[in-house]
Design a protein around this nucleic acid. Structure first.
Lengths: 226, 226
DNA sequence: CCAAAAGTGTTGACTGTACACCCATGT
DNA sequence: ACATGGGTGTACAGTCAACACTTTTGG
């Protein structure tokens, strides 16, 4: 070990910031938390926090999600590492961005005495955000849309059993377009990712819809479609 | 500013490591540099270095490429941020991985007195590498192959003017498969990315090949093909 | 004139897209 | 009975994949 300490001298603050997507009331929403500290006190921000010593990046992201929204078993994927945080008034900070997907009902807001206010915000009317989190969100949305088209990550947004309408609506909401019912079904079934159960779901005065489930929980890479 | 210094207290070493791809002698090669310091002294490693105070991540990558291989104007893209560097004997290090593309003749090895030995290594027979750089390379290769199929980044590996054979060979070498000459040309021309010049390139006793050039230097996102 | 790479079209298979009606249920 | 979303097939168009011979040059 002739390595001099000097080479290793400069150190940097590192944060992990996660864009948590979920679907609620037929809208794509993200989890934001009002900051209770400066800078940007009072503005909503992504679920984030400083990386602690000897902590893995992904573990830090998971820790923050569990602490702030009771989240467990989410789909989590690293996005990009931003240094726009040079705009952080406290000085340079490296921010490793993640994105997460979860069904709405897995989010449990903890109401402890801290003034932090977590909430779900529709992507359609986002308020002004802390830091440059706006651009991290834009990046995450782009990635989400791309991945939806060539993987089965939709799995992570849906309950274990779901109707074809729910599945299709998930795609429509995220991609922002209308899809043809028959073509959608045809393609999706041909992929072999889902199969029908013998259960049905009844919602009011309509014909009950058959419930389906994903055959594999593993995230699969598929050929691009649409 | 009620922010306590505590929140910001933990600091981390951050390195930037770049996988530089180029094509030489009909092979895909990467730039590696023999380490002259511990740890892993003597083993080849990616072009990398510590992020300096107040330096942007991308600037750090560019600085290292310019210093170690005289590279200018490369295509550079952030890959992923690794914390496998927990295996670094010196302690935890965050490594932001980049990948770069450049034509072979843009690489100029500087032979200063330092014992660093930069060189191009074929991906087919890589030696044992320092750190976990093997896995960064695997990741970069995956990304390169994917991007080749839906963007025009091939542009960054070729000279300003090139023959169709060169272009096709670039794809074949990177993707590791043989492509049909007519189908390749048909698709590529239909994208409108390249156009023919009125110049020809003569290589020995064959019919001279027409030279083409890219119409736009901007990296375009295309629909996936192949 | 020979070797070597350049250049050039057609066909069949497949995949994607557009499109409309009957069904089962709750009220 | 009716309103509501559930469920189903076909035909056309566009894209992809396979395939072989002639041309031009240098030696």
């Amino acid at each position: 070990m002739t390595q001099k300490k000097l080479d290793n001298y400069w150190q940097h603050s590192v944060t992990v910031d996660t864009v948590v997507f979920t679907i609620e009331e037929n809208e794509l929403k993200i989890l934001l938390i009002k900051r209770r500290n400066e800078p940007f006190r009072g503005l909503p921000a992504l679920a984030g926090g400083f990386l602690q010593p000897n902590e893995r990046l992904e573990d830090a992201a998971l820790r923050v999600l569990a602490d702030k929204a009771g989240l467990q078993n989410v789909y989590l994927e690293q996005l990009y590492t931003f240094d726009e945080m040079f705009r952080d008034p406290r000085g340079p900070v490296i921010s490793v961005g993640y994105f997460a997907l979860t069904p709405r009902n897995s989010i449990v807001f903890k109401n402890d005495k801290q003034i932090e206010e977590p909430g779900l915000y529709s992507l359609k009317h986002l308020p002004k955000l802390a830091f440059d989190h706006q651009s991290i969100i834009a990046y995450a949305l782009k990635r989400l849309r791309a991945k939806l088209e060539y993987t089965n990550i939709a799995y992570s947004l849906l309950p274990k059993q779901f109707t074809l309408s729910q599945l299709q609506k998930t795609y429509e909401i995220i991609l922002g377009l209308k899809l043809d019912k028959r073509n959608f079904l045809k393609k999706y079934l041909s992929l072999g990712l889902i199969e029908q159960t013998d259960k049905f779901f009844s919602a009011g005065r309509q014909r009950p819809a058959r419930l389906y489930h994903f055959t594999s929980k593993k995230i699969a890479e598929l050929k691009r479609w649409f």
